[in-house]
Computed example of a mutant assay.
Amino acid sequence: MAGSGERDRGAATIFVLAVGLAFVAAGLAMASVGTARVGRHQAHSAADLGALAGAAEAIYGQPAACTRAERFVSANGGEMTLCVVDGLEIVVHVQVEVRPMPGLTRHAEAAARAGPVYITIE
């Protein structure tokens, strides 16, 4: 007759495998969150730099300002989805493709505005 120790044989192996799988899943989840955050920061940087570059050309009109903004956004890994020039102000919307996990694609979005600061003296 087999003792109770014989029935538990191999249980520790299954337990260690389950714990290891939990650590791998947690690591993948944290890596996905980190990738998403990096994508968000990349989108913000591309939008900020594109808006600043476009604001320098805003005096020449929307086509010149948006063309320059687009060059800077693209150079920083983004895709410009909207560019609006109002006077000397420019608003740039940017989208960056993020792959948090293999086979999963998301988009991080950001917007930035640049232009002169108007001070009213009363």
Rank of each mutant, 00 (worst) to 15 (best):
E97C: 02
S32P: 09
R7G: 04
R40A: 12
I59L: 03
R7H: 11
E122D: 07
V73S: 05
M30G: 03
G3T: 09
A55D: 09
R40Q: 14
E122V: 05
E79Y: 07
E97Q: 09
T81N: 05
A36V: 14
G27R: 00
V24G: 00
R7A: 13
I119G: 14
Q95S: 12
R68S: 05
H93Q: 14
R7V: 13
E89Y: 01
T13D: 03
V38G: 06
M101Q: 12
V85K: 04
E89G: 01
D8S: 15
T13M: 08
A29E: 02
A31N: 05
G61K: 08
A29T: 15
V33I: 14
A55M: 04
V84T: 11
F72V: 01
V96P: 09
H44K: 14
V92N: 07
G103F: 12
A12K: 05
F23E: 01
R37I: 05
G115D: 04
A53E: 12
D8Q: 13
P63Y: 01
A25K: 00
A65C: 08
R106I: 12
G34S: 15
F23T: 06
Q42E: 14
R9H: 07
V94L: 09
A36S: 11
Q62N: 08
S74M: 06
A29F: 02
T13L: 13
A114T: 01
A51D: 02
P102E: 14
C83Q: 09
G103K: 07
L88D: 01
Y60Q: 07
A29I: 13
S32D: 11
D8R: 08
P102R: 15
F72W: 06
A108R: 00
A26M: 13
A75Y: 02
A26P: 00
C83G: 01
G50V: 00
V117I: 14
V96I: 00
A55C: 06
R99Q: 06
M1I: 14
A110G: 00
P63Q: 10
I59V: 13
M1V: 07
Y118L: 12
R68Q: 11
A47P: 12
G34E: 02
M30E: 01
V98Y: 06
I90K: 00
E57V: 10
M1L: 15
A108N: 00
V38I: 04
A2L: 15
G10W: 08
D8Y: 07
A31G: 04
H93C: 05
A110W: 00
G5P: 13
T35K: 15
E97F: 08
A26R: 01
T105D: 10
V85C: 06
R40L: 14
A11F: 13
A36Y: 15
V92T: 01
A31P: 08
A108Q: 03
G39S: 03
P102V: 09
P63F: 09
A53W: 02
G54L: 03
G87K: 00
A58P: 02
G61E: 13
L82Q: 07
E97V: 13
C66G: 01
S32A: 15
M30C: 10
Y118Q: 13
Y60P: 09
A114S: 04
D8T: 14
G54K: 08
A69G: 06
V96R: 03
Q42F: 05
A22V: 08
E79W: 04
E70Q: 12
G50P: 07
G61D: 04
R68D: 02
L49P: 12
L21F: 08
V85E: 03
R37P: 13
F15A: 15
A110L: 03
A58K: 10
G3C: 04
